[in-house]
């Protein structure tokens, strides 16, 4: 075989491979593999699973190859737009998985979020823009229907908007706070936060801090936490005791802080029962119990691809509708046809 012949031979082999990659049968195989992949993803723990990634990538290859070789795509505009939009969806989902962030943070009433997340799960290419963000919580109310069924949450927050001005807003449930693309949602995690001021004996600046007790009413009977006084090695165990019924199952109620309460503080062998204003004197300094506040847990979500994903998905739906409209309007379903093909 001459060089030219072998060149032609290899080129036509390439073309054949491309046609195969773009074939309808391969598309069906990919769809079936995706079906299996979805079941695997559903049953497994991790979200991004090879069983999903492989069929999606293979589908993307199939779409590209089809676009290059399939004669139908050369003629039918809306059908091609639909498949291109699907390809865009796959690409955007991939980009989103590389750069997303999910996390959680807790903020006490009157305190602020300062860029540090309590839990964090992110894609490999997610930056750390969140470290520069901050907002303050001004307290929240949560309505409860009879039977302790949670209703609307309203949380007033303050932040600097894009123009640099201080703005306050009420967020809750479906209304997140959106800062630089990061979405902060109030969650059902919320609870009580006894607040202390630590006066170091060495005469440093008094520090104010809040201890977030386990979520209420989820951990109604475990309102205790062990924590360490900052700057020392002193371990403190704190428990909140109160008689008041915060959420009455017999009527519509609201989440509120207990009025009369006891704060049990245990350090080593010693035990105190504190009221607001009382202090505990330690060798390292004085721990003053200031009072009880609430804390709110937020879930954080970041994915910049969402608007484009929505645009692509809508483009897919509408272009498919357009395609079917044209196709079905051209021939009535009840008329005899000669060849029976339905491409």
């Amino acid at each position: 075989m001459s060089v030219a012949d072998s060149a032609i031979g290899s080129r036509s082999a390439g073309v054949r491979l491309l046609r195969l990659a773009g074939s309808l049968k391969f598309a069906l195989i990919n769809l079936a593999a995706l079906f299996v992949g979805v079941c695997v993803a559903y049953l497994s723990d991790s979200r991004t699973v090879w069983a999903l990634v492989v069929p999606l990538a293979s589908s993307a290859v199939n779409l590209l190859a089809a676009m290059l070789t399939n004669a139908v795509f050369r003629r039918q505009l809306p059908l091609l737009v639909f498949h291109l939009a699907l390809l865009a969806v796959i690409v955007l989902v991939a980009l989103g998985r590389l750069t997303y962030l999910k996390g959680a943070a807790e903020v006490v009433d009157g305190g602020s979020f300062d860029g540090v997340l309590a839990t964090r799960e992110a894609g490999p290419f997610h930056g750390d823009a969140i470290a520069a963000l901050s907002f303050a919580s001004h307290g929240f109310t949560i309505d409860y229907a009879p039977g302790i069924r949670r209703g609307a949450t309203r949380n007033e927050v303050a932040f600097r908007n894009a123009a640099g001005r201080l703005e306050t807003r009420i967020i809750g449930d479906q209304q997140p706070l959106v800062l630089a693309g990061y979405r902060f949602y109030t969650s059902h995690n919320k609870g009580f936060a006894p607040t202390f001021v630590w006066h170091p004996a060495a005469g440093g600046v008094p520090q104010l801090g809040a201890v977030h007790l386990p979520a209420y009413p989820l951990h109604e009977y475990r309102q205790a936490r062990e924590w360490v006084i900052p700057g020392t090695a002193t371990v403190v165990w704190t428990m909140l005791q109160f008689q008041e019924i915060i959420l009455d199952p017999d009527k519509a109620d609201q989440f509120k802080l207990p009025g009369e309460h006891d704060l049990v503080v245990r350090i080593g062998e010693q035990r105190w029962q504190l009221q607001p204003g009382m202090s505990v004197s330690l060798p390292a300094g004085r721990l003053e119990y200031v009072g009880l506040r609430g804390w709110m847990g937020y879930t954080v979500f970041y994915d910049w691809t969402i608007p484009w994903l929505l645009a692509a998905a809508l483009a897919a739906a509408f272009s498919l509708g357009w395609h079917y409209w044209r196709k079905f309007a051209a021939r009535p379903w009840n008329r005899e046809q000669d060849d029976g093909t339905t491409a």
């Binding site: 979200r47 449930d173 479906q174 209304q175 949602y185 969650s187 879930t299 979500f301 994915d303 969402i306």
Partner: peptide
């Protein structure tokens, strides 16, 4: 906006 993420299997 209801659950903080658009897809979670």
């Amino acid at each position: 906006d209801a659950w903080g993420r658009y897809w979670a299997w």
